[in-house]
């Protein structure tokens, strides 16, 4: 059975309002909801479909929530590298993930294409170079048959297929699979799985961040034409005024 490592990151839910810490170094978690990105939910789903899956995160104590979520949908083991992810750059994260891969002899690593907060688009690729493995980036589906990976995704000129032997790193974009919901027994089981906690192997070099900023709020001078279906005549009046009604 393929031994898979799937990498998830606890991130702020950016659909809620984003507030920064006073030093501008991070999003203020006190006002935010937390989640893992849709890409990573799909990576977890693919991991449990493919084989025996361990989930790993590098994050603070609260990131256990994301590990439990992955355990609840079928991952069988979890590693928690306990560290403040804000002080880790993509190369730092890749080095820590590589240590976990080596320790457990995984032959496939799945990640998201990009993290929903830092959006660096590179941890998977850097991890592949750490391991000396090939990397397929931004695919929607992955399967393994007889030691061969088949991965599919949308390319600029059509639907693309990759085929390559294990071991490899693959980064996943949402859309190819429907992540399953955790069942009640799944959640109960997840609570009992021991989480392998560890410290980072080295001091992080950091992300090169000077500071975070919020984009200036756009002034609004929207003219509300109405609510619901009753607005239709006002809308069509507008179309007539703008001269956009086809004849």
């Amino acid at each position: 059975m393929t031994s898979v490592l799937v990498c998830v990151k606890r991130v702020v839910d950016s659909s809620s309002e984003v507030v920064l810490t006073d030093d501008g170094q991070a999003v203020d978690g006190r006002y935010a909801g937390f989640t893992m990105s849709a890409h990573e939910e799909c990576a977890v789903e693919l991991a449990v479909q493919i084989g025996d899956a361990r989930v790993v995160t590098l994050g603070d104590a609260d990131a256990v929530e994301q590990l439990r979520a992955a355990l609840a949908v079928g991952c069988t083991a979890a590693t928690h590298v306990v560290a403040d992810p804000q002080t880790f750059g993509p190369a730092d994260v890749a080095r820590e993930l590589a240590a976990v891969v080596r320790e457990h002899d995984h032959d496939l690593v799945l990640l998201g294409n990009d993290a929903a907060d830092s959006g660096d688009f590179q941890v998977g690729i850097r991890l592949a170079y750490e391991l000396g493995w090939p990397v397929v980036n931004g695919v929607a589906t992955v399967s393994v048959q007889d030691g061969t990976i088949v991965a599919d995704g949308a390319g600029p000129n059509g639907h693309e297929t990759y085929r390559l032997p294990l071991p490899a790193v693959v980064t996943v974009l949402e859309g190819g699979v429907e992540p399953r919901y955790p069942t009640v027994p799944g959640r109960m089981k997840a609570k009992k799985v021991p989480i392998d906690e560890r410290q980072p192997t080295a001091e992080p070099a950091g992300p090169g961040r000077v500071r975070l900023l919020l984009p200036p709020p756009a002034p609004s001078d929207v003219q509300v034409l109405g609510k619901g279906a009753e607005a239709a005549p006002a809308v069509v009046d507008l179309f007539e005024r703008l001269g956009v009604l086809a004849r």
Partner: peptide
């Protein structure tokens, strides 16, 4: 300056 947090925030980054 680059987009982070799905575009909800910007990051000034030194290269």
């Amino acid at each position: 300056t680059r987009q982070v947090v799905g575009g909800a925030a910007l990051e000034e980054m030194r290269l």
